[in-house]
Amino acid sequence: MTDYNFAYLDEQTKRMIRRAILKGLAIPGYQVPFASREMPMPYGWGTGGVQVSAAALTPDDTLKVIDQGADDTTNAVSIRAFFQRTADIATTTRTADATVIQTRHRIPEEPLRDDQILVYQVPIPEPLRFLEPRETETRKMHSLEEYGLMHVKLYEDIARHGHIATAYAYPVRIEGRYVMDPSPIPKFDNPKMEMAAIQLFGAGREQRIYALPPYTKVVSLDFEDHPFDASKAPHRCGLCGSEHSYLDEVITDDAGGRMFVCSDTDYCEARRAAGYVGRDAA
């Protein structure tokens, strides 16, 4: 063990964050203000998610950290090491073994269970931000359920592109009440949000926490004649051959060569270990 308090934050701060989390769970989709602390990392690197994880972790937990689906990128590796050092807890890269999963930009492909917690890093929690810059006004719009403006954004998409071109951070309505920004996950992941695990959202710079209890109803906004479509690249994974997972396009040379691979590295590795082989696996 180190000289840090368990999971870096002091106990008072964790209590304050837990109160915000409980309030968020009681009012699904509502943005609860909290006194975000300075963390030893820059804003935009997951300060909100780290504080929520720190408040949610217990010494028996196993932590997994995902950055854009991958376990081995800078952000994921450094946050995992951070909690290893400050909380001395077990970490894993396997979705099934984890009890707390902190994520940036993805939901794991493997369905989560009711004994797991998914923590999202959120850059901008306010879905109405780019339409209405005044925070006083957006709060009033949330409290009065004035969400017509959200559809103006989708209208603009269709008018300009012929279809709803918003592909990530796609706005959702929670239990017919609050409109919520699901953090910048691809819209492919939106239908997965009605899940068994608890979902917590932390925005450090904006000082907001919001949450979804298990099996909360999450509806992606759309028009009657332009329904929501959870699309993905129409390919198979080049390594594991999966046709149901979200894919990253990887440029392989400067002659137009490219391949599509699962963005969820753990899912892809598990499939390859089970003997699935894709077209580009050498």
């Binding site: 017509g148 403006l149 559809h151 103006v152 209208y155 603009e156 008018a159 028009f223 009657e224």
Partner: peptide
């Protein structure tokens, strides 16, 4: 979008 905003605010959902 400007003209449509009031329609969407009162519940129009057909593009």
């Amino acid at each position: 979008g400007n003209v449509g905003e009031r329609l969407m605010a009162v519940g129009a959902r057909n593009y």
